[in-house]
Nucleic acid binder design. Structure first.
Lengths: 225, 225, 225, 225
DNA sequence: GATGAATGAGGATTCATTCAT
DNA sequence: TATGAATGAATCCTCATTCAT
């Protein structure tokens, strides 16, 4: 009992330091990109000496990897709540809300995520982990599409999922570029509209008897007269 | 008269050197990103000594800027042929073919363009030029949308143009990631489908009397014979 | 009376700590040399924190110095027992046994001694202390030689002592490199043979009437007919 | 013909630089030992920038290796002239002169050799090369001893060679420590005396009928007038 | 113009040493 | 006292840039 408080406090301090360093790294990576970021710059941003940084991370790559892993983990949690069975029961617009909103929110809250994932000059293991997450997300999107449009061939489903995801990422950049507030909200809404229009025909074709999917008049671009 | 040939030859030689260096730079930037690329690596790739490189460019940023400007210029030419009055007279699928294809082609032929424009760690002036081109393109897209959907408010038009462009960029990445050949073609077709589905409702709403615009899947320009 | 035990215990504990640290330092110096040894490595080897190390030593050099001094002290004790009046009365082979054996034993038991004394990159004061010991030993050897060969000039005596000592050091390295056991013993015996052959002529020349000094037939290579 | 002078001059300059850097390294290694020597210190000693140093050597170890190899090569040449058949025909004192003198001279001229070979914290490849040379030398000494004392068993021959060589190394240190001039010469002479006295009995024992080998003090090549 | 050696400031990393707990 | 986190100067090494040839 007399020996616990110290180690605990130490561990707590260590955790705080790590968090502090990772946050600093996130900021600097965001501002300058991975390659152009120096460990000294990270240490400075964290108000810490270079030596301290190296007490917690063996090298620059390790920082990026740890940061990447934490972000990926959070990201997985975020999308884990998105693709629930409950949400799959919703009509397409509802599903899009349920899926798009948390992903957008996560990326708004963690701009370093994209900064780290975009760079082509990023250490191997991050790229791998990123690809893994990418693949997971893609699989989820494919499953969703398969659920809404069971008649689609595997190849079509895969291609559609890929394009939807690509468009989402493009829209995400737009959202992040927009200033927080009504403009960003409008951009998010527009992104959902785009996805809805892209995906609706698939749903309608394979399940023509679901008028509930039409959310706004004219929202789904394609109808037979 | 006796002194002209030399300067001309010199200028010609200089142009060749510059082209050679820029091509080398494009390759290395593509492979390693701007920051991670060393001027020595560019010189090596160009089979030229570092000193020669600095005879033509004052520093590393200048290389990127010149390369960026040339690419932007070519890109402008490419899209200049896209947004012609003639093309504006086409129904939407035709217009999409006319606009999307050259842009895709340009980016396939010049992967350095995206490599240079993507990097968050790229020198300021490139970013500026890029933003300029971006704005130009966006304006063109807005004009097109204004032409096809004259009833749209300026704000809606702008937002729609932005989203369409963003989705295009997302799709472009996908296209570039796909291996050349039928898979890439299919991806391009899918991108057009997405844009078509996204934009069709606008056209139909404001110009209900244009049955030609009716969007059937596969209506866009790329189809298998 | 109530305050004495504590200081004593403290001093005792301190002594133990110091011994523990010096032993650790000896190990690490042996394994990696003085310069390449980090204070953290010593602390780790001693199962102690770096802070604790600095509670007992002001800096890295001080550790080496203290270790050196202790080793030198022990070494002095070892050779103090070697050069006794009693031993000086022995014939040369007996004297060599009496002198060489304890020195060899000491160095076998304390490999850090040579590790510390050999390094050319060792802090100045160790070198000084080492030189002091060196001088002491040399003086003793000179005295011995003076005792056995009183006719020798001072210069000759000094030169002979230096060479005998140098050869001994060379042989010592060889002994330490040999695996413990019969091979090492044979090497020690050979070293004694060398010293005997080197020194015998001096003895015989100045004290021609001491046939006892010839240990083995032919052992002293030089004799006048 | 017009293209040769430049490359040649360049190569020549490169060779000079390398020699200059190696000489500087030799000096600093001598003064501070391998581990304590910084590449910047070598560059400074060579009146050159750190970058220049790294144009010719990939790292510190490479400098030590190259220096070691050059010294070992020279050393091999030096002793190659020592162990000739001609010299083997000489009586022992003559042979000792022929063998000891060039080795001593080499080490006086190249003190870095011992500095590099002594350090226990020296890069692996030097140690290996050094061991190789060591083994070569030892083999030669064994051969010589075998020649002069053919009756000796292999084990005795090997042990004797090892001890003679060890004593030589000890004496070498003494020689190097002595100031150049008569004192050093006297030390060298004394070293030869030691070796002569150590080895003579073997010769006499196995070749008792060779009065030419008779060893009088001062028989070796160096004598005061 | 072309070359490539030279430069030196800057980046990643280590380690002797200090200090709050 | 003991701890181990914190410090920052010093190391090794790179690379944008300059300069003698």
């Amino acid at each position: 009992m007399s020996e616990e408080p110290k180690p605990r406090r130490r561990q707590a301090r260590g955790e705080r330091r790590i968090a502090q360093l990772l946050e600093a790294a996130a900021n600097v990576f965001c501002a300058s990109g991975y390659t152009a970021t120096s460990t000294n710059a990270i240490a400075r941003e964290a108000h810490v000496s270079p030596g301290t940084l190296y007490q917690y991370f063996p090298n620059k790559e390790a920082i990026a990897i740890e940061l990447g892993e934490r972000l990926l983990h959070d990201m997985r949690e975020a999308h884990g709540q998105a693709f629930t069975a409950e949400n799959l029961a919703l009509p397409l617009p509802g599903l899009l809300d349920a899926v798009v909103d948390p992903l957008i929110e996560f990326n708004c809250a963690n701009p370093a995520f994209l900064a780290l994932m975009h760079g082509s000059d990023v250490p191997g293991r991050i790229a791998e982990e990123h690809d893994e997450l990418h693949a997971t997300l893609l699989t989820r999107v494919e499953e969703v599409i398969g659920h809404y449009a069971p008649a689609l061939s595997a190849a079509d489903r895969s291609r559609t999922a890929g394009m939807a995801f690509a468009a989402f990422k493009g829209g995400l950049d737009l959202v992040l570029a927009a200033p927080e507030g009504p403009e960003r909200d409008a951009t998010v809404a527009e992104l959902k509209t785009l996805l809805l229009r892209y995906l609706s025909p698939l749903v309608e074709e394979s399940a023509a008897a679901s008028p509930a999917v039409a959310t706004r008049p004219g929202a789904s671009g394609i109808h037979t007269p």
